[in-house]
Amino acid sequence: MTMNSLKDVYTDQLQDLYSACKQSLEATNALGRAAEDKELSEALIDGSNGIAKGMDVLKSICAKHDLDPDAEHCHGMEGLVKEAHKHVLEEDFGDSDTRDAMIITQYQRMVHYALAGYGCVVAFANRLGEDEDGAQLQQQLDHTYDGDRRMTEIATKGGVNADAA
């Protein structure tokens, strides 16, 4: 497809973000099963629920624009998911606290990718006058930021990093 306008970029990125969410959902579920810290495990379950809700929003917006949400494959998230598998699920750890610290690291990398994606599509929607899309996407962006801050608190104030040290 030739990109001729911001609308083309917007629709491409909606599909790319849907793919990123789909891939990160599977990885987040796997990270949640590997987590030992109760607070971390609960946050990852909440994160999975948030990702699924974001996918529903993206799917709805894609339908509104006559797009197939599965038409794109996000290679960026594919790489981040591979890294999560390599550094958490396939790695040997001497203790669960160290694994939990790595889980937070890998999860936040995926979240930061999603933050960039949501930030872009919010800006595109708003510029294109797609106010309803923009409001729904902004809400997902805000929830994603909340999840990222929660992980930072679990790592730094909740004791995961201290226990791993």
Rank of each mutant, 00 (worst) to 15 (best):
H65L: 09
H65K: 09
D66A: 15
D66T: 05
D66K: 14
L67Q: 12
L67G: 05
D68I: 00
D68W: 06
D68M: 06
D68L: 01
P69W: 00
P69E: 01
P69N: 08
D70P: 06
D70C: 12
D70S: 13
A71P: 05
E72I: 11
E72Q: 11
H73K: 13
C74F: 03
H75K: 13
G76R: 03
M77A: 05
M77V: 04
M77G: 00
E78Y: 07
E78K: 14
G79I: 10
G79H: 13
V81I: 09
V81W: 01
K82Y: 09
K82M: 15
E83D: 13
E83N: 09
E83L: 07
A84F: 04
A84I: 02
H85C: 13
H85Y: 13
H85P: 09
H85M: 12
K86I: 12
K86V: 12
K86E: 15
H87G: 05
V88L: 04
V88Q: 02
L89K: 04
E90I: 11
D92T: 14
D92E: 14
D92A: 12
F93M: 06
F93S: 00
F93L: 05
D95M: 11
D95S: 11
S96D: 13
S96T: 12
S96V: 10
S96L: 11
S96P: 07
S96G: 09
D97S: 15
D97A: 15
D97F: 10
D97E: 14
T98L: 12
R99M: 15
R99C: 15
D100M: 04
A101I: 08
A101T: 08
A101Q: 04
M102L: 12
I103H: 04
I103G: 00
I103A: 03
I104M: 04
I104W: 01
I104Q: 01
Q106P: 06
Q108L: 03
Q108D: 04
R109P: 00
R109I: 08
R109W: 02
M110S: 06
M110T: 07
Y113W: 11
Y113V: 10
L115H: 02
A116S: 14
G117M: 02
V121T: 04
V122H: 00
V122K: 01
V122C: 09
A123C: 09
F124Q: 00
F124N: 00
A125P: 02
A125G: 00
A125V: 01
N126M: 08
N126I: 00
R127W: 07
R127T: 14
G129Y: 08
E130G: 05
E132K: 10
D133W: 01
D133M: 01
D133P: 04
G134C: 00
A135C: 07
Q136G: 11
Q138E: 08
Q138R: 09
Q138H: 10
Q139R: 06
Q139V: 03
Q140A: 15
L141V: 01
D142S: 13
D142P: 03
D142H: 05
D142C: 12
H143E: 11
H143I: 07
T144A: 06
T144P: 03
Y145F: 10
D146N: 15
D146Q: 14
